[in-house]
Write a protein that binds this DNA or RNA. Structure first.
Lengths: 215, 215
DNA sequence: AGATTTGGTGAGAAGTTATCACCCGAGCGA
DNA sequence: TCGCTCGGGTGATAACTTCTCACCAAATCT
């Protein structure tokens, strides 16, 4: 979106068409899921015919890669915005749930079943680390009266991924549990595994968050 | 597999071919994922040509439905076997992890991203309730010195799904957290989200299990 | 203005799911 | 045991999909 005027008109048009293709792809994913993404249908709905799309994306995989990248970046943005608003760990946690419920297919595209032949590009791991840094910051700011867990001592020797983050091992362990527990509730809820049980998933999510905060 | 001799030869042959088709389907799913399941490839690998498969399964969806049913039943069986071996909650928990690691695609077929148009048949919810009953039993047998949580009071009025199970609300709440937390670690590990972080996922799983046991 | 890059199209190859009419042989009842 | 029925298998076909190719037109750059 930035400096859309320094580029040549060609590149402006190209970027706009790419954005429009991704827009239609998101719409199609939201209705039928990621595995039902059809390049032909996107092209037909945009008024142009099949092979024209290949001028903008090398294939289905590259389009999905771009969508995954956008999803990661969107999550990282909302995470940082929620962290900047204060409220400690609860802010990003509620933002995560809102982000997931806003478009479940987008959540599954990032955290769901990995697509068969697809491998995440190397730069999305950087964005993923960005979101993890937000959780790590929030966890490091929390008071912790618990002793270091046995997993904490294990992770002390295996934390190169928390690249130079000044968080004690207990905070790193807590950040990981924040991630896995919130994802556990969210993914089961979004996949529909709670239908039939008539409790409120939001309350279970809140209960997990409370348990993560009060320790 | 039972009473394979009271049936007519026709039905015996039919059941055997159906089983062989499912065998090849599992093999194909284990290598390429569920979305890459090709009826043509299965037929070709079995020596017969395309449309012959439609004598045994109405289509791709019915085959997947049958595989989901088998996966649920396999999980329920291993769960009950693990619960029968004693060891309380740790038995089913480790059995779940072993079952998931044994065939990740099978785990994702049950707990992963829901396939676009597919709806779980009504009888698998019964099998799912069977596995939930195992967790409920184990949780009800655990000593609990914690007071009833606020979610516990909520679930007291919304527990028709725990159909007549004589577990106190705290045990129901704990059973739900067992499910969501173990699934949280497992699904992220199987989806490859821990690659790059060099800690041992088994230890994180064990840490979550320990935290669930000691409360 | 002329040359070149770029976007778009139609045709076509190689897949897929799924349906159709047809054929043949195994299993069934008389 | 004979004959018939019915179920399994096949090829052809339709409607899709992704993706490649040669060609054409139009916009851009020199």
């Amino acid at each position: 979106m930035t400096d859309t005027r320094t580029k040549t008109p060609r590149e402006r048009y190209r970027a706009q068409v790419r954005a429009e293709i991704k827009e239609h792809a998101w719409e199609q994913i939201a209705t039928a899921g990621a595995s039902a993404l059809s390049l032909n249908a996107i092209a037909k709905r945009m008024g142009m015919s099949g092979p024209a799309l290949y001028r903008y994306f090398a294939g289905r995989d590259e389009l999905i890669t771009e969508l995954v990248r956008d999803a990661y970046r969107s999550l990282a943005d909302t995470f940082r915005a929620a962290a900047g608003a204060g409220a400690g760990l609860a802010g990003p946690a509620h933002a995560l749930r809102a982000w997931a419920l806003d478009d479940p297919h987008r959540y599954f595209l990032v955290f769901g079943t990995p697509v068969p032949g697809y491998r995440a590009p190397d730069d999305v791991t950087g964005i993923a680390a960005e979101t993890m840094a937000v959780i790590l910051d929030a966890c490091a700011a929390l008071p912790s009266d618990r002793p270091t867990t046995s997993f904490g001592t294990h992770i002390e020797g295996h934390r190169q991924w928390a690249d130079g983050h000044p968080a004690p091992p207990a905070a790193v362990h807590r950040a990981l549990t924040v991630w896995t527990r919130l994802h556990g509730v969210l993914s089961l809820e979004l996949a529909g595994h709670f239908t039939g049980m008539e409790f409120d998933p939001a309350l279970l999510y809140a209960a997990e968050l409370d348990d993560l905060l009060e320790r």
